[in-house]
Design a protein around this nucleic acid. Sequence first.
RNA 1: UGGGGCGUCGCCAAGUGGCAAGGCACCGGGUUUUGGCCCCGGCAUUCGCAGGUUCGAAUCCUGCCGCCCCAGCCA
Length: 771
Amino acid sequence: MSNESTHFIRARIEADRAAGRWGGRVATRFPPEPNGYLHIGHAKAICLNFGLAAEYGGTCNLRFDDTNPETEDPEFVDNILADVRWLGFEPTAVFYASDYFAQLYAWAEQLVRDGKAYVDDQSMEAIRANRGTVTEPGTPSPWRDRSVDDNLALLRQMKAGDFPDGSRVLRARIDMAHPNMKMRDPLMYRIRHAHHYRTGDAWCIYPMYDWAHGQSDAIEGITHSICTLEFDVNRELYDWFTAALGFAEPPNQLEFARLNLTSTVMSKRFFKRIVADGFVDGWDDPRMPTLAGLRRRGVPAEALRAFAERVGVAKANSVVDLGLFEFTIRDVLNHQARRRMGVLDPLEVVLTNWPQGQVTPLEAADFPADVGLPGSRTVPMSGRVFIERSDFAVDPPDGWRRLRPGGEVRLRYGYVIRCDEVVEGPDGQIAQLRCSVDLDTLGKGTAGRKVKGVIHWVSADHAVPAEVRLYDRLFTTDEPGAGTGDYLADLNPNTLSVKAAFLEPSVTADAPGVRYQLERHGYVYRAPEDADRGLVFNRIVGLKDTFGAKEERDARDDGDDAEVPAPAVVDPRAQAEAQARIKAQARLDHFTAHPEAEEAFQELVTAGASDDEAWTVASDPRLVALVRGAAGIADIGAVARWIANTLVAEARDRGLDALPFDGAALGRLVALVEAGTLNARLGKQVLAELLDKGGDPKAIAEAHGWIQVSDTDALGSAVAAVMAGAPDEVARYKAGEKKLLGFFMGQVMAATGGKANPGLVRTMLQQALDA
RNA sequence: UGGGGCGUCGCCAAGUGGCAAGGCACCGGGUUUUGGCCCCGGCAUUCGCAGGUUCGAAUCCUGCCGCCCCAGCCA
């Protein structure tokens, strides 16, 4: 199926393995808090963590992040474990953060002894107020500089239960003015005289998430701690704690975007609300996006896994079309679910020329030929059948392939029938169809006339009654609450439709838990939960319905043609001018405070640098020194251009301090490029090495043989060779695909080790190609 | 607004200096005893915008715009 893409987490793991980090080990974990049921969003995280571990021969633990005694419940522990197993994963080990409380506490004392944590007596309100805001720094607590001994004594008293809830906390001593709010002396412990479902009353102080999580990862030897995007601000703190404790090879946190689906809300608050309001029957209601709900609905675990793979893993917030999930379910079930016939809304059909009292067993394959799976069952045929009411129309629309007065249609796996008479009931509704059957059409085509329509049916005398429940999505819009902010207002009032259906009798042979495709309807599941009520089926998902979709579209097109507002047009020239003004003003402001920068700026502009380039260099004294060092060696404008466009990027990782070369060396490099000894690419390579080890540009170039080739004979043969090796591309180019010039350029440059004179090659290539 | 993250087709998503992958959706056509499945073809002269560097830019530089996250003793 999908050849799994190398998303950024896989790429990171592979890089780590290549670098030999953690001895090449891969250890992940899935860390739910046991305070609710898992939903389809969690399925993505589960598949990611367990999948990656399996892929790299690693381990994946299930760890309950149970650090908050007030919200957690053992009921959820069991259900979460069941959900994970149902999804098809077996944890390497099942752990609980609460098992680490003693270790965590010991480490907390260590941080106190190291002066890296302190007990704060401020009230919750005071702590909040003193945290500052995103734009203002916080103010240090008056208790921030207590002695180690006092802190230790107080922490022990906290642990011993000497203080009431909320009276004191333990905080990490980091920086109350830190730009990252998470780093402003974050809380490590709070006092809660609460009963924990696992540790009982052993503790009255409980660790906060940030304090517990990374350390729990470290205890378990996790290598890649994968979490969702909103925790990326926590990573700095995660790293601070593991560094403060001095772990040799601390785990790394990686964040990916959580799954969002159209027409779906995934929050515990929402789930609780609709369960409490009776909108659905419980957390495991088949309409719920919880794993329990999806399982009860009949969605196979394999579909969840395939879906997780299909949506990908990235860092961009996104909303996946619910249709993709439905497609994935069908894709999986198409090859698993045997076909059966069932009529949800019956219309009686009497076959007027059927031999009186005869019952004919018809063989029907379990799967159509294209699926290619074996098996069959027999379907009894008699003189009175039910067909779907929607498969008959007195006045059908264009393109109708089903039954109509006087029209013909094939009964699936059976005969062709013709509608001779429509019998109306007293209410004017169609009560019965009287049809004639062509007994010569079983298993063969129809001579001379084409019958396009095939409809499903059941023998009225043999069909078994069953309940089939059709579910609709929970919301009427793709983006619940988009306009109003109140997603409850967009709840779909009609999410359940219970059908008194008639199914072919063979379904009684299967036990609850089976999935069928009810032909032309969709996939259904006989939920074990409802087994005691007889034949009860949930429709998992409908079949793709191109005819119905078209009709719907036609109906909509007849309605209002909403005017699409024209996008605001931005005049590029105006934007460029506005930008120039903004930049100029920023420079002016900077120059007022730094007159020496203005001096350098003017100097560079005079020497021929553009304003932007001059500004980039002038705003950093280290760059100014560099460019001045090149004076008299190369054109100053060119040097400024190299610094602004290339050096800045190349030096980004290592920083600008203590460069292993001076301005003169840079000047000599630029001069080599100016003289044509090096082309731009070669120049960049030399610069990279200069940055790495220093040295003389010319010597570096010569040592590698990096000298630009401008010899037309040598270049000519390279061009010819490339063209000879790519006849298809040459033909396409000649046919007008001029953009392929870049492809040829790349080939020639690669063939010459990047040494060719690109301007020359381009000209020669064009000549040769246009010849 | 301080810090951080992210902008590639209607929705996801590859791509990290050399021909804009793939899937869903959509539009044609073929096949069909499921208006399903399957098959073939069409779907981004352009990567948030604007300048610049380069022979060559989605990718490098500069600026701007937009969306998301952080001010729980929740996780």
